[in-house]
Design a protein around this nucleic acid. Structure first.
Lengths: 223, 223
DNA sequence: GCAAAAGTGTTGGTCCTACACCCATGT
DNA sequence: ACATGGGTGTAGGACCAACACTTTTGC
């Protein structure tokens, strides 16, 4: 009837053409010195959503991240000391945010670091399972919802957007078809600006038109 | 760090052309005499998935139901006596199973009963919210996954199948288009049988070809 | 024979995929 | 001038929505 209550965070970020996940190095037993998803105990007088934000900040130094609930894990064997229920949350971060300095403000974690998805080590507890489920959810969601924009800075090029799709889906897409499709959606605002500081033809920058975007993808279901 | 741990069940069933949900009448305070989703405390030495099945049985008499996790609710104000974390599960039941006698085997609940979705009363705790979220999930899922079959008996007519879609989506569909689409999917087996005991032309019966069905709709994502 | 639901095709529009070359820019 | 990625169009096929009448059966 009673259980220890924790939350874990799966934070994705996109840079250098690759999808990354944010991990922390544990400084406490059990699993001392192992890499793990940022996570900790929820206080008794604290809303779960507040706890997630607090814990992510304490573990990594990241603030102002919007997280969605993924799944509740409650297996009796998750933790060596008996059942610990964890609710996993996940979030997608914009490229420029990933430049923010990562530094835990708690001694429970030694450091926080971005890992490319295919270079993630074995993780503490059942965090490998949790991460795996998050990636699956991401792939399912990108097919229906254009979550890709959450991984990019405000102004982005179509090639960057395509790279996000390709890195999440794990396959290459046709450039012409991709552009046609995105522009046809009608929620991209073409800017009068182009990229700067590149050693080749500079690409046009685009912005997400949030009004139109939400109109299309917000499920307005009446009960 | 510690919380009371419960599970709630949202059980959908389809009969008489309407989507129904299974509710129980509480026989205990708080919310005595209110209708609520079947749910109760998870034992400390019990896996969550086992607890859901046990509790559903104790509350309603239903057995052998496969439930999927929906969402974890942990608001501090969910329950008058402080935080109670609940993990909500949902399931779809086949028509013939809904004929099973409902009778709670615990004194916590006075009775269990099917309610058509649009005749659900105000529910105990935050169960109205939980139910609402389940229906939304159902609608989202039926667009991508043919979960409708879980609500029908083994052998069904195309009209029955269409009624399931219509009652979940809340709108009418074109008969010819619906049939073409379903038959084109290729996972329906046409049987040599027809309906019996109807006072009009008997409809052909179909069966789900599970092999073909799974091949199409099982996400095979490698990590 | 009539009431009730079963069953059936076509057309026009939209969207998807496959595919290869020229363009603009920085060095 | 060359290397690099930016940017563009078309044709064929698949899928979708709209639309109304005939057939079968039980009573």
């Amino acid at each position: 009837m009673y259980t220890t209550f924790t939350v874990d965070c799966v934070i994705f970020g996109f840079y250098e053409g690759e999808l990354h996940v944010l991990l922390t190095e544990r400084n406490e037993y059990p699993f001392k010195d192992w890499w793990a998803l940022p996570g900790f105990f929820v206080n008794n007088d604290e809303e779960m959503e507040d706890a997630v934000k607090r814990i992510l900040y304490e573990n990594t130094g990241l603030k102002d991240v919007f997280l969605d609930q993924l799944y509740a894990f409650a297996g009796l064997k998750r933790h060596p000391q008996g059942r610990i229920l964890t609710v996993a949350y996940y979030a997608l971060l914009q490229l420029d945010k990933t430049k923010i300095k990562l530094k835990p403000v708690t001694s429970y974690m030694r450091q926080a670091k971005w890992f490319p998805l295919n270079k993630v080590p074995d993780l503490a507890f059942d965090h490998t399972t949790i991460l795996k489920q998050s990636v699956e959810k991401l792939r399912r969601r990108i097919a229906n919802t254009p979550i890709a924009f959450e991984l990019l800075p405000d102004k982005f090029t179509l090639t960057q957007l395509q790279l996000v799709y390709e890195s999440i889906l794990g396959r290459e897409l046709d450039k012409r078809n991709f552009r046609k499709k995105m522009i046809n959606y009608g929620f991209l605002k073409e800017l009068d600006e182009v990229q700067k500081g590149v050693a080749y033809r500079a690409a046009r920058l685009y912005k997400l038109d949030k009004r139109k975007f939400l109109k299309q993808f917000q499920n307005t279901i009446t009960f």
